[in-house]
Amino acid sequence: MKKILLLLSMTLAGCTHSIHMSHMSDVSANTPKSINLNKHIVEVTTEQTVVLGFVFDIDYVDQAYQQLQEKCPTEIVAVNTQYSTSHRFLHWTNKIRMKAVCAS
């Protein structure tokens, strides 16, 4: 019975996730038209693994901010910021994804 329980829980558990928020910034007049969008999109993702809740900084947020600016030295418009968590066994991974349009 315990084996069935374990198998069932592993199947149900899988890898679950939770999107806490997805924020879209304002979009300035310099934004390219959608037809040219793909070549202007920049995207960065940073993450932090947390074991049993012991975490002492949230520097991964600033890392995403820095990496986005490094990827696009010109104006960055239409910024979509997503904060999510992937749940795991006794630990979890916090993720920041920043996707924006590089108005070069």
Partner: peptide
């Protein structure tokens, strides 16, 4: 079963967990 599931899915959550975290990647 509840205890095992709770241990296997640890972490902060907003609402109920989902099984795909890429569903909002294309909103832009």
């Amino acid at each position: 079963l509840r205890d095992i599931l709770a241990l296997m899915n640890m972490g902060p959550r907003t609402g109920n967990p989902v099984y795909d975290d890429e569903y909002a990647n294309k909103v832009m």
